[in-house]
Design a protein around this nucleic acid. Sequence first.
DNA 1: CTTCTCATGTAAGTGGTTACATGATTCA
DNA 2: TGAATCATGTAACCACTTACATGAGAAG
Lengths: 173, 173
Amino acid sequence: MSLRFAALGLLAQHPGSGYDLLKRFEKSMANVWPATQSQLYGELNRLADSGLIEVTAVGPRGRKEYRVTAAGRAELRRWITDPADDPPLRRPDLLRVFLLGELSPAAARSYAAGFADHAASELRRLEELRDSLHWDDDDAAFYGRAALEYGLRLAAMEKEWAAGLAVAIAERR
Amino acid sequence: MSLRFAALGLLAQHPGSGYDLLKRFEKSMANVWPATQSQLYGELNRLADSGLIEVTAVGPRGRKEYRVTAAGRAELRRWITDPADDPPLRRPDLLRVFLLGELSPAAARSYAAGFADHAASELRRLEELRDSLHWDDDDAAFYGRAALEYGLRLAAMEKEWAAGLAVAIAERR
DNA sequence: CTTCTCATGTAAGTGGTTACATGATTCA
DNA sequence: TGAATCATGTAACCACTTACATGAGAAG
């Protein structure tokens, strides 16, 4: 369901074509809800079928300019506000942690160290992203910054946790 | 793919029936990789077909006792060690954050406050879980504790982040 | 005129969810 | 004997991924 609202939300911020959306999507929401090109185009057609968005113009190369309808905006607000029973998290990397007992302590320690490295590089990536973005003062920028801050804190937390785990494994023999 | 290894991993720790697995699963891995009964049973059959596990006995009510094979253990170790390109995270709750600009500041603030509450109650749930579990000193317990520690830190981080966001929204008007 | 970017779509396959279906055994 | 628990399975549906297909317009 979520992709539906990601698309609707992007259109609520700015009208545009599927192609436009696709690119804006990569730079913002794809970090929390990745989707492919196929999926996006399909979703736009379904949104239009249900009257939540509409085609305002057809340009060159069959380009379709979309815009949110009043119904779409209402539906979007409903979803955001809803007390949401979101699908649970799926974390293969943490699943592996449960199973590290199957490995030698050295190999397990190495997995934890790799986890820490990965978190560290994600942290750097997000820091660069934060520094590279020219932040406007509108709502989209404000809340985008908030989501980025979440990512930064998450990466920092993971780095410390995994480093601590690596140490704990080493100390355990 | 991951559920396959969750099942394989549980069997590697202890042999048992699908039903047994299902219950052990709920109390450990389901927190990082939820799965349904249908899915588990299907996966066990597929694992048996590929020779990674085997049926050692058939009991009353058609109960099938499973055990990991040598091939299964090897495959499990391979997966844990693998430099994994894990599927990206999907977070509807953070997607909503991107779209809070569609709401009034009061409603957005309320969403952030709800986020913080949810994190706080998750934090309490995990603290209780930690205190209720009688921890053995084996590998499974050690790494299970590590995964739980991750959950605790995550919940604490989310609580603080969301509370901060709520304040920032309030201060912004 | 060829290459790049713009622009949209279809099809096959996989993994997951929900609901349904079935029946044996245990225990009060 | 009726309810709870043990125990396994099927079928329909939905979301997502990967790969493929097509073609118009811009720019050199």
